[in-house]
Simulated assay, not measured.
Amino acid sequence: MSAVDRAHAEIRGAIIEGRYEPGVMLSESELASALGVSRTPVRTALARLQDEGWVTIYSKRGALVRGLSAEELHHSADVRQTLQIIGVERAGEEDRAAVRPRLEEMLVKQERALADGPFDTFVDFAIRFHRVFVELAGNPLFTDFYDKLRDRQAMMLLRSESVVVERASEVVGEHRELMELAVAGEVVAFAETLRQHRDEIFKPLVRAAGGEGESVG
């Protein structure tokens, strides 16, 4: 891995995990010192992160960590939800039945992670769980696009940790209900349950971003 790639991965990871919170100004020289690289790869990494929407660079001042606006939260949730619904809608009965063992295994691991931690293990299995519904469409472009939203989905979940942990049994139960509806091919019920599930988890985050009372999508 090049110095640029390493700097990019480290800084992006810190933003996603909340170690660099929205509104924090990042210094090139301080980042370079912390990462053990020169300022040049850090500068290139920050430019890439700006293109990806994670920071805003201010000349001679540094890079400001961006938060996700309510609108961005809605748009991201809309795309993820639509891809999952299409996957369930397009899948045949055999394909839907075939994913049940994978989903059940992930549910067990989610429950264990919520009980014993760490929380980022739950986040990983939750994202992989929802991705299975996208895979059902059999369209690699769908899964590729879904994967591009993974970092934002992870950040949303990590910043909703208190809500998820407080509702741990309900969250796993909602995931189990989604699995049952998907396997049964109940597309309309799956879509409504998915919407309600996302609203319960992400509404506090949307309110904090300035979208009080709105559905997350």
Rank of each mutant, 00 (worst) to 15 (best):
E52P: 01
R48H: 04
A32S: 14
A45T: 06
Y20H: 15
G53W: 00
L49H: 13
E17Q: 14
R48E: 12
P41T: 01
L46G: 07
Y20M: 04
G18S: 00
R39L: 05
S33L: 10
A32L: 10
A32H: 07
A47R: 10
E30A: 15
L35K: 12
G53N: 00
G18P: 00
D51I: 00
P22T: 05
L35D: 11
Q50Y: 01
A34H: 06
P22M: 05
M25Y: 02
E30L: 11
L49S: 09
E28H: 13
E17G: 08
V24E: 14
Y20G: 03
Q50R: 12
T40E: 12
G18F: 02
E17D: 14
R48I: 00
L46Q: 09
R39G: 10
E17I: 01
M25P: 01
G36P: 09
P41F: 04
S38P: 03
R48S: 07
G36V: 12
E17R: 15
E28P: 08
L26A: 05
A47L: 05
G18H: 07
T40G: 04
R48W: 08
E30S: 13
Q50T: 05
G18K: 03
S33I: 04
S33M: 03
E52W: 02
G23F: 09
G36T: 06
V42I: 13
P22W: 04
I16Y: 02
A32T: 04
M25V: 15
G53L: 02
V24T: 15
S27F: 11
P22A: 06
A47M: 09
I16C: 00
Y20T: 07
D51Q: 15
R48T: 09
V37W: 03
G36E: 11
G36L: 10
L35T: 09
E30I: 04
L46P: 06
D51T: 05
E21G: 03
D51E: 14
A45Q: 06
L26E: 05
L35S: 05
S33T: 15
S29V: 14
G23W: 03
R48P: 01
E21D: 10
I16G: 05
P41N: 04
T44R: 14
L26T: 05
E52R: 04
R19Q: 09
E52L: 06
G23L: 03
E21I: 07
D51V: 02
G36A: 12
S38W: 00
A34V: 04
D51F: 01
S33N: 11
V24Y: 04
L46M: 09
A45H: 10
R19P: 00
E21A: 14
G36H: 13
Q50C: 03
S27I: 05
S33F: 09
G23P: 04
R43D: 11
R43M: 03
A34F: 02
